[in-house]
């Protein structure tokens, strides 16, 4: 039972940064924009949030700082991709490199001391339930926020008019422009939202998941989040399931290392990356399934025809 609880809660926690980052990217991609710079935005968020904690700010302020750092970074991408109509692949890569550089630069003074991690919640009665308590009601607040964001984004995308407009823009910006929707402005908002979420994901890593600063601590999670969006065939529920799947993989790998499995630790560490490839292959083989929810204008620069 102990082990089961450890694996279950570990999975949920490991999935949380992926949920934030991938859901944010989902919204961005649904608007027809491909931001490859998640890794950079996450690192900026992680660095800023960690800095805020060491500078003595409260946890909520630190997390907000991380989210805003991600949004600020995404604005750089937005200006390039939306205003300057650059190749979105290149702009995203530039952001990934830039973010890793800036975060490493900021992080040089952080030292290697861990900080006090974000606490789990304490709900009277519920948190003290025998099995369910530790299983469901003792996570830190961001875990619940991630789930809340899932509900909110699913509702927004498929149950509101604004969400419909966003998806329309992702399918055909020319049509949306002709109808009179502000394509560029809405795409900017989507990109900023994606940055905010990536920043949150980074903040979660540095103040809750592993509460210490290590250069390039995201270790590819931003790229895995990108893969998750493809894996999810651009559907929120599948993003959530995919994130849990990857979270579970991470935890099993860590448990395996802890149990001293007779395999090299590097092989276990490589599992999430291998799994990403395998999963991508399985999903991408089915072109129809991909095409069904794929935003038709993804990564194509939009210039209003005049």
């Amino acid at each position: 039972m102990e082990l089961f609880i450890a694996i279950f809660t570990g999975t949920i926690i490991a999935a949380t940064p992926l949920i934030f980052a991938a859901l944010g990217e989902l919204v961005v991609e649904k608007s027809g924009v491909l931001n490859l710079g998640i890794e950079g935005m996450m690192l900026m968020g992680a660095a800023l949030a960690f800095w805020a904690v060491t500078a003595g700010y409260s946890m909520p302020v630190a997390i907000l700082a991380g989210a805003l750092a991600g949004a600020a970074a995404s604005l750089l991408f937005g200006v390039l991709a939306l205003t300057f109509l650059t190749n979105q692949y290149a702009a995203g890569l530039a952001l990934a490199i830039f973010g890793s550089g800036v975060s490493a630069f900021l992080g040089r003074g952080f030292g290697s001391e861990p900080i006090e991690a974000l606490h789990g919640v304490r709900i009277p009665v519920l948190s003290d339930l025998p099995v369910l308590g530790p299983l469901i009601f003792r996570f830190d607040p961001l875990v619940y926020l991630a789930l809340l964001m899932f509900v909110a984004i699913s509702w927004f995308l498929y149950r509101t008019k604004a969400g419909l407009i966003l998806r329309t823009i992702g399918e055909s910006p020319q049509t949306s422009h002709a109808i009179g929707y502000p394509v560029i402005r809405i795409r900017y908002m989507a990109v900023l939202f994606g940055g905010l979420m990536a920043g949150l994901a980074g903040a979660y890593l540095s103040v809750a998941y592993t509460p210490l600063w290590v250069e390039n601590m995201t270790a590819g999670k931003g790229w895995i989040a990108l893969a998750l969006v493809v894996f999810a065939t651009w559907q929120p529920l599948r993003v959530l399931l995919g994130a849990w799947l990857f979270g579970g993989m991470t935890i099993l790998q860590l448990q395996g290392q802890a149990l001293g499995l007779q395999v090299p630790s590097e092989l276990l560490s490589a599992l999430p990356y291998l799994a990403t490839i395998v999963v991508l292959v399985l999903i991408s083989r089915n072109r129809q399934m991909l095409a069904l929810h794929f935003p038709a204008s993804l990564a194509k620069p939009f210039r209003p025809a005049s």
Binding site: L76, L80, A91, L93, A94, I97, F98, G101
Partner: peptide, 15 residues
């Protein structure tokens, strides 16, 4: 890390 920052800025401006 300055190198990576400069790399990023350079690519930004180039694009």
């Amino acid at each position: 890390a300055l190198t990576r920052i400069f790399q990023g800025i350079l690519l930004f401006f180039l694009l």
